[in-house]
Structure formats: structure tokens, C-alpha cells
């Protein structure tokens, strides 16, 4: 499993991670492509209660999102990330409501961080100019 650690003190709120994430999930692997394809980022840097926080799937041990899904569209993959079966998903939004980290966004179907499973390492961490986001394999 791949964990992504967020060091709040190092984050400058530039949101480069968000851009890198959207680009990584586009067909052309580019920012322009991501904008054209309306790809949304699977990580968001927000201010909550005056503090910076990263909204991203935390790979819970008992994911509530999987639990609440009435049609069983969500499941855990071999690498530990949450997978969505778009053919089954009805876009009801219960998973989004259930997630305690605000990590799920409903775009064309629930988008959840996949730790960039097709790449060597998550591109958000790779793109972070201040190393506030770091990858850790566990």
C-alpha cells in the first residue's frame, strides 16, 4: 500500500498537486488535456478551521464508502486503493457523504485517489515543489 503523508507546515497552498493529479488522469497526461476532458483532481488543498488540509483518500481499514454503497460499485483493489465500477454506480452520492475526509468528488462517477497505480509514484507527491506531500510505501 502507498501512503501519502501531508506535512502542513511545508505546504504553501500553491495547489500544484491538484494540477498534477488532474493531468495524470487525463488521456494526454497534460494539463491542457485534463482541462479539455474536464478531469477533476483527486486531491484538494483546503483551509479548514484556519488550517491547511489535504482532502485525499486515506485508504481506511474499514472504508465507510464501500460499506454504504447500495449497489456494491465500490471495492478495494489489490493495491489497497478504492476502485469504482462505473457500470454499476448510480451516482447516488452516498459514498461522498460517508467519507470522513471529504475525499470523494462526484464528477462523471465518484473519483477517488488511486495513488497513480499506473505510475511509479503518485504524481501529486512528485509535483509538490516544497515536498509537503511525500509518498511512503507500507
Amino acid at each position: 500500500m502507498v501512503k501519502i503523508l501531508f506535512e502542513r507546515d511545508k505546504c504553501l497552498g500553491c495547489k500544484t498537486c491538484e494540477l498534477a493529479c488532474a493531468a495524470a488522469h487525463s488521456k494526454t497526461k497534460s494539463l491542457l488535456g485534463a482541462i479539455k476532458e474536464k478531469k477533476v483532481s483527486r486531491i484538494r488543498i483546503k483551509v479548514k478551521n484556519g488550517k491547511l488540509s489535504a482532502e485525499q483518500c486515506a485508504l481506511c481499514s474499514n472504508p465507510r464508502c464501500i460499506e454504504v454503497c447500495p449497489v456494491g460499485a465500490l471495492s478495494r483493489s489489490k493495491t489497497g486503493t478504492i476502485k469504482v465500477n462505473p457500470l454499476v454506480c448510480t451516482m447516488c452520492g452516498l459514498c461522498q457523504e460517508a467519507c470522513p475526509f471529504g475525499a470523494i468528488v462526484l464528477s462523471s462517477y465518484p473519483t477517488i485517489c488511486d495513488r497513480c497505480s499506473e505510475q511509479d509514484e503518485p504524481l501529486c507527491a512528485k509535483a509538490c515543489p516544497t515536498r509537503a506531500l511525500k509518498m511512503k510505501a507500507i
Partner: peptide, 27 residues
């Protein structure tokens, strides 16, 4: 919010197209 810290500190340069360049002081 949050607003980009690089811009806020004046550490982002877009004066030429080799950039944008950003100076990272926190690591």
C-alpha cells in the same frame, strides 16, 4: 483559500518562458 504562498511571498517569477520558476524555502 488557501492563496498560493509563492505569490504571497513574491517568490514566483514568470518574467520569461523558461519559467514559471519558484524558490522553495521551506525544504
Amino acid at each position: 483559500q488557501p492563496q498560493c504562498g509563492f505569490g504571497e511571498m513574491g517568490l514566483c517569477c514568470t518574467n520569461c518562458s523558461m519559467g514559471p520558476c519558484r524558490i522553495v524555502k521551506v525544504s
